[in-house]
Amino acid sequence: MKVIFLQDVKGKGKKGEIKNVPDGYARNFLFKKGLAVEATPANLKELE
């Protein structure tokens, strides 16, 4: 799953980066803790 990092995550990505991460990791950790959002067209547009 492609995500946009909202904060630096040690060993995974830095704020503003767009990266592919495993689905479970994204849903169960990154999204729940507010560290990233899914890289949807709407979210990508907001990032610009």
Rank of each mutant, 00 (worst) to 15 (best):
M1G: 03
M1P: 04
K2Y: 15
K2G: 04
K2R: 14
K2A: 12
V3M: 02
V3T: 01
V3Q: 00
V3P: 00
I4N: 00
I4Y: 10
I4H: 02
I4S: 01
F5S: 00
F5I: 01
F5N: 01
L6S: 03
L6R: 04
L6A: 03
L6Y: 03
Q7F: 14
D8I: 03
D8Q: 05
D8V: 04
V9S: 02
K10V: 12
G11A: 03
G11E: 05
G11K: 05
G11V: 02
K12H: 15
K12W: 15
G13K: 01
G13I: 04
G13H: 11
K14N: 09
K14R: 13
K14H: 10
K14D: 05
K15I: 07
K15P: 04
K15R: 12
K15F: 04
G16T: 02
G16K: 01
G16Q: 03
G16W: 11
E17H: 05
E17P: 00
I18V: 13
I18H: 03
K19Y: 06
K19D: 02
K19R: 11
K19W: 08
K19G: 07
K19A: 10
N20D: 14
N20T: 15
N20E: 15
V21S: 02
V21Q: 05
P22N: 11
P22I: 06
P22S: 12
P22T: 10
P22L: 08
D23H: 13
D23K: 13
D23Y: 15
D23W: 15
D23A: 15
G24A: 13
G24I: 12
Y25A: 05
Y25M: 08
Y25H: 05
Y25T: 05
Y25K: 05
Y25S: 04
Y25G: 03
A26F: 12
A26P: 01
A26T: 07
A26G: 04
R27L: 13
R27G: 03
R27N: 09
R27Y: 12
R27H: 11
N28Q: 10
N28R: 10
N28D: 14
F29Y: 14
F29Q: 06
F29G: 03
L30P: 01
L30I: 01
L30D: 01
L30F: 02
L30Y: 03
L30M: 03
L30V: 01
F31A: 02
F31L: 13
K32L: 13
K32A: 12
K32F: 07
K32N: 06
K32G: 06
K32R: 12
K32E: 09
K33S: 10
K33M: 15
K33L: 15
K33V: 08
K33Y: 15
G34L: 09
G34Q: 09
G34E: 06
G34A: 08
G34H: 11
L35G: 01
L35I: 06
L35Q: 04
L35R: 02
A36T: 00
A36K: 01
A36F: 01
A36W: 01
V37G: 02
V37Q: 06
E38T: 05
E38F: 05
A39D: 03
A39G: 04
A39H: 06
A39S: 05
A39L: 09
A39T: 02
T40G: 04
T40Y: 07
P41D: 13
P41G: 09
P41T: 12
P41L: 13
P41M: 12
A42L: 11
A42D: 14
N43H: 10
N43M: 11
N43V: 12
L44A: 06
L44W: 06
L44R: 06
K45S: 10
K45N: 11
K45H: 11
E46T: 11
E46A: 14
E46V: 12
L47I: 13
L47Y: 14
L47F: 15
L47P: 05
L47R: 07
L47D: 06
E48F: 13
E48V: 13
E48I: 15
E48M: 14
